[in-house]
Design a protein around this nucleic acid. Sequence first.
RNA 1: GGAGUCAUAGCUCAGCUGGGACGAGCGUUCGCUUGACGUGCGAAAGGCCAUGGGUUCGAGCCCCAUUGACUCCACCA
Length: 886
Amino acid sequence: MKKELAKTYNPKDIEEKLYQKWLDNKYFRATVDWSRKPFTIVIPPPNITGQLHMGHALDNTLQDILIRFKRMQGYNALWQPGTDHASIATEVKIIEQLKKEGIEKEDLGREGFLERAWKWKEEYGGRIISQLKKLGSSCDWDRERFTMDEGCNKAVNKVFVDLYKKGYIYKGSKIINWCPVCHTSISDAEVEHEEKEGHFWHIKYPVVGEEGYVEIATTRPETMLGDTAVAVNPEDDRYKHLIGKKVLLPIVNREIPVIADSYVDMEFGTGVVKITPAHDPNDFEVGRRHNLPEINIMNDDATINENGGKFAGMDRYEARKAIVEELKELGLLVKVEKHIHNVGTHDRCKTTIEPLIKPQWFVKMDELIKPAVEAVKSGEIEIIPDRFNKIYFNWTDNIRDWCISRQLWWGHRIPAYYCDSCGEIIVAEEEPSRCHVCGNTNLRQDEDTLDTWFSSALWPFSTLGWPEKTEDLEYFYPTDVLVTGYDIIFFWVIRMVFSGYAHTGKKPFNKVLIHGLVRDSLGRKMSKSLGNGIDPLEVIDKYGADALRFTLITGNAPGNDMRFYWERVEASRNFANKVWNASRFIMMNLEKAELTKTIDENLLTPADRWILSKANKLVKEVTDNLETFEIGIAAQKIYDFIWEEFCDWYIEMVKPRLYNDQDETKTAALWTLQHVLTVSLKLLHPYMPFVTEEIFCTLQEMTGLKEKDSIMISSWPEYNPDWEFEKDAESIELIKEAVKGIRNVRSQMNVPPSRKAKVIVVSDNERVKEIFTESKAFFAALGMASEVLVQDDKSGIGEDAVSTVIRGGTIYIPFEDLVDIDKEIERLEKEKERLEQELKRVNGMLSNPNFISKAPESKVAEERAKLEKYTDMMKQVMDRLESLKK
RNA sequence: GGAGUCAUAGCUCAGCUGGGACGAGCGUUCGCUUGACGUGCGAAAGGCCAUGGGUUCGAGCCCCAUUGACUCCACCA
């Protein structure tokens, strides 16, 4: 019993079933096989807290396309999947959950909390994975990893210890970005700078021991509680005399020095800057240069601490108000100006960052970053599109030490142990049983965990077994391509690159494919707060995964952002439906046919050879495009080929042969249909895995020509240099031209398709006559002709006919009653005008001696051919006009 | 203050290393129960390729400047 396809394509009927089939047959599985070439992609691990959003959908569609393409090409394609523990995001989620139960994090204690966290991970961590499956992602799920699993933890510890031993990891008290809500330090990359409207408060600081004061301008008056100096530029004549003297810090009534530092910009503000080393990164630097005391005036929740005297306990903004109020009362507030400035916020919770001095762990970057810079400079790692090199270098060139410790519980705990009796710090992969200096057995592990990105940086090799010397690592590493959005270059890409070189001695990947963001239809970022996000799962539910995938990779240039439109998804769905129906038609006709794998080429008609060479050319182009990551361009070409060339032209051309059992070329037509369809399906498969699989399998059953149980393991079509049928291509193009001409004329005259008419091709060119004679059958069908006559003169054709000119001939349609001679003349005049334009252009070029001498020969020849063609057509138009005007 | 992206049909965007804009989808107009598909078929309307220079036989594409929109980076109190 042969399978039937439903009338319209319904993705829901097949997607789940096919995905299950792929899983059951282990088609996604990749294992070491030295006889084959590997092709490896590691997934950017989605957060376990995450839900699939459009960004994931795009990112993973791109990866799946590349993987499926390479797999079909015969590579041993591994797509390594996994998830990220996402320290802050997850910890915040769990704290929220606990809050609902009225529990504080501290109530549970570290162990209790972690237990809850793991439970949460077990429950929700797999959600995004199942969503990725709905997209059709062909990851090797047997290899699924987690950034906090045992192997990754081992890798993290080893890296930490190694870097520590080499002096690249150190602990230090430096000013760091502190999030008062999340209660943790964060790295520079996690700080977002937002322009905010603020104020500029001008405050008088009286000079000690003499009359007068200096006026300073500040955006954060509350930090004056921690001021330990006032700075001026050493070149500033206005203030030179004050350098070395002291001023009295108002309210606090502390005497602080006036120092000179070139950091101060004379042009900006008043030229005098208050220095608060403990709460401003710049002031911190100045403070260290001048050995100033660092007075921390804040608690971890950004309330004022005991160093703030009577303001202690107030929130930083309350304190600001109170201090301004008091300054006013003291008569020390000169003025308040509006001021727009950049404020750093935490990218996760949008809280304004508070710079604080805290002991933290850092990775020293200056040496480590060097190979990462060199790799991209030399082209050993290629970033696509290459304009992102600049973003990459912008970050590497300005890199600062990476603050890696986080005051969180969910994450890799720092493998550093303190001996409280002798003060020794022991950094080791395994917890030491005793202090190697004093023998103390009561060691205390560092409370902090590591930045999430510390473990993600190792992802390309930790997932393959590193630090063990596994065969996987040897075979699949370095990976081939990394696919990710431009927003994550500095968070992740750079860190993977330097980590790869530092720990494996190799680059983590050869190429980085960067894509843009998916925005809403108004061009805004999709975000939770705006509520403008579109759920990919909803799209899949309504239109199918294939439609979503196709939509995401077409209609935009690499690296550029794209807007999401439902209309575009609909168009993609329509395309899937088109493929479905074309296949349905073909299979309908194949039912009774006996096909063989290859065909005797002598049986092929010009139309067959035309579409075969078109398909052949498509194979070459699509393959080339995919090799160079021009994924959207390739998709567009496949779309155009299937819809226009194959469906609208070839299938229509072939219909008369299919309906005529006497036609000895019918088998050739069926074979060609089947062959071109199969090639098209294969090319389309990476983009639309589900429809193509369903049709491919059904088609195989129908024809009995079985290649493989699944299209995804079938072989990628290969370009055949022998299948360039130039002559047939020319013939068919000529017929297409004629058909278009006829349709155009008919449409202009409002002739309904039901009214057939005789079509007479007049030409004195033997080749032209031959072309129309051999293709008469389908030319008649496409041109809505009742009968086609091919003759070499106009005998028998009266004035009551309309005509259209092609190269080498004129086509007449005697419509008798419908023909209005004046209108016909008008039409021909227009055609004449058009040709005149063309001739003018071509003649212009060809009469330019510089063009002839400097342009490439092929171009000149091309233009000459056009001249010939248009001249010929012009002559015919003129002839016709003449006879009508008589 | 640096850097980048974008400006092409009513809308959203393609246009590869310079060689006539066959531009695509959607929308619009007209005509179609043409034995796969109305999620379709056929025909059409619609573009000074932001502006001003330059290079070139030839520029939407390369160079310079200008205008406008957006994004990223940056410690100006």
